[in-house]
Design a protein around this nucleic acid. Structure first.
Lengths: 252, 252
DNA sequence: GCTTGACCTTGACGTAACGTCAACCTCTAG
DNA sequence: CTAGAGGTTGACGTTACGTCAAGGTCAAGC
C-alpha cells in the first residue's frame, strides 16, 4: 500500500508541508519518488511518521527525535532530559506569571513598579526589608515618601546622578590601580555627597552619612551581585569598596 | 549627560546589539547621532530603555511594548492580556509535562505508548475506560493481549488495514452522494470484516460484530472528533455513519 | 606622525519548525 | 481539451536578537 503526500498527511493528521520538511531534513523520507518527482509513502513510513508526530507533541525538537529514531539515544533517556527542560521552562513561566501579577497589582494601587528597576543597583533604599532591618523602620518610609513626591524630571536627575556615578566608578575600577588616589577619593566624595541627598540614609549630627552606613554600603557593593554588576562586577566593586573604606577612615 | 552605546548598555544591563536593534525598530532611538554615525543616549532614553527592559523581562513582545510606550494601550490592560497568554502557556506546558512523564513510565513498564497514537482514530479498543464501560471489562483486555502478541509486521498490517479503510471512507465521503450505493455498502462490508479480526469487538454467535456495537461505532465516528478527523471530518463521518447504519439494517 | 587597541558603523547570516505565497508541472475526470 | 485538484522546487516570514565580517573613528603611547 502506498499513499500520496496529501493522503498520508490526512491519515496522520498533519500537513503536506510538514512532510516535505521532514523529507528535507531526513527525518521521514518517502519510500519512493516517482519519475515526476511525486513522493509516495508506504506503511513503514507511516509508522515512522506516527512516532515522530507523537514525540513532537511531547515537545521534543527534530534533532532529538532524529537521535531517538536512529537509535543513537535511548528514548527514555532523551525523554528524561526533555522532562528536565520542561520543568525549567515551567519554573521560568511561573516566575514571569508572579512578576506580571505583582506588577499589575502595583500599577492598580498607583505605585510605580518602574522605579524599582531604575533604582536597582544604585540605591539601597529600595530594598525595603533589608534597609529597615538594619537602619530602622522609618528609613525606607522616609526615602520612599521623598521619592514619590519628586517631579518626573527630579526623579530622572536623581537616577541619573546615581547612574553617572556608577558609570564613573566602573570606568575607574577598570583602570584599577592605574587610577591615582586623588581621583579615586574624589569619586568617594561624590558618593558621599549623593548619600547626603538621600532622605533614607542614616546621617550623623553634621549631616554627613554615618560611617557605619557608608562602610555597610561599600561592603554591599561587593557582597550583593545586584549591585556589583553596576559597579564593574565583583572585581570592580572590590575596588570601589576599598576606596570608600579609605575615604570613610579619613573623613567620616 | 550623554552616554555612548556601550556605556548605556552596561548601565542598563544589556548589550549594544540590543540597543541597535531597538533603534532599528524604533523602540529606543538615540537622542543624538554624531556626524560619524555614533549613537548617543541621554537620560530620557535611559529611562525609556529601563521601562522597555522591565517589560521584556516580564515576557512582553516588542510590538506590545511599543504600544504601551506610545500610549496606544494602557499598561494594565496589556499586562492583563499578557497574563492570560502566560496562563495558557503554562497550561500547555503542564499538559506536556504530564504526557512526557506518563510516556516515560509506560516505556519503563515495557509498554509501547506509540501504539496508542497509531491506533488513534481507527480503533475504539484503545480507549480502555470507554470500551470497558460499554462492552464489558474484558473487552479491552482481550484486544490488548492480542495486539501485544502480534509481531511487528502483523501490527503494521493491522494498522494499515485500518488506515487504508479510513482513507477510502474519507475519499468516498468527499464525493458524497455521488458515490453509488453498492460502493458505499462494499466499504461498510470491509469495515465489518475488519471488526471480525478485532478480538475485543463484541460479536454475535455467527462471528459477525453485533448490531449494537456496529451502530455504536458508527455513531462514535461522528460524535467523537478524535475519529471524525480521520474519516473526512464531521461531514465525512456523517456519511460513513449513515452508510454503516444502512449496512447494519440489511446485514446484522 | 604612526601604531595599537578599544569602540563604533552597516550588512548579513543564523536561529526552530514549519506557514505561506509564487511559478510552474502533472494527473484525472467530464 | 480543459478545468481543477494536487504535485514540485524555491524562497521569504516568523522572534529578538547573537555572531561574525569588513571597515571607519578615537584616544593614548612611541
Amino acid at each position: 500500500m502506498e499513499w500520496s503526500i496529501q493522503q498520508i498527511a490526512r491519515l496522520a493528521g498533519t500537513t503536506s508541508r510538514t512532510l516535505r520538511h521532514y523529507g528535507d531534513v531526513g527525518l521521514v523520507v518517502p519510500s519512493r519518488v516517482g519519475e515526476n518527482g511525486y513522493r509516495y509513502y508506504d506503511s513503514a513510513a507511516l509508522v515512522r511518521l506516527q512516532r515522530v508526530l507523537l514525540l513532537r507533541e511531547l515537545g521534543l525538537g527534530i534533532p532529538a527525535i532524529a537521535d531517538i529514531l536512529t537509535g543513537q539515544r535511548d528514548d527514555t533517556v532523551a525523554l528524561r532530559a526533555h522532562l528536565e527542560w520542561l520543568t525549567n521552562e515551567k519554573q521560568r513561566l511561573d516566575r514571569q506569571l508572579a512578576s506580571v501579577a505583582r506588577t499589575i497589582s502595583d500599577l492598580e494601587r498607583g505605585e510605580k513598579p518602574m522605579a524599582d528597576k531604575m533604582f536597582d543597583g544604585f540605591d539601597h533604599t529600595i530594598y525595603k526589608s533589608e534597609v529597615e532591618e538594619r537602619w530602622g523602620s522609618d528609613s525606607y518610609a522616609t526615602s520612599d515618601k521623598c521619592y514619590t513626591s519628586m517631579s518626573q524630571s527630579e526623579k530622572d536627575d536623581f537616577l541619573l546622578t546615581a547612574a553617572e556615578l556608577a558609570s564613573d566608578w566602573a570606568a575607574a575600577a577598570e583602570r584599577g590601580v592605574a587610577v591615582d588616589r586623588a581621583e579615586a577619593q574624589a569619586l568617594a566624595q561624590r558618593q558621599c555627597d549623593w548619600l547626603v541627598g538621600i532622605p533614607g540614609a542614616p546621617k550623623s549630627a553634621d549631616g554627613r552619612p554615618t560611617r557605619q552606613y557608608f562602610t555597610w554600603l561599600a561592603d554591599s557593593y561587593v557582597d550583593d551581585e545586584r549591585f556589583a554588576v553596576n559597579y564593574g562586577g565583583v572585581i570592580g566593586a572590590t575596588f570601589v569598596r576599598d576606596t570608600m573604606r579609605v575615604f570613610a577612615d579619613a573623613h567620616l
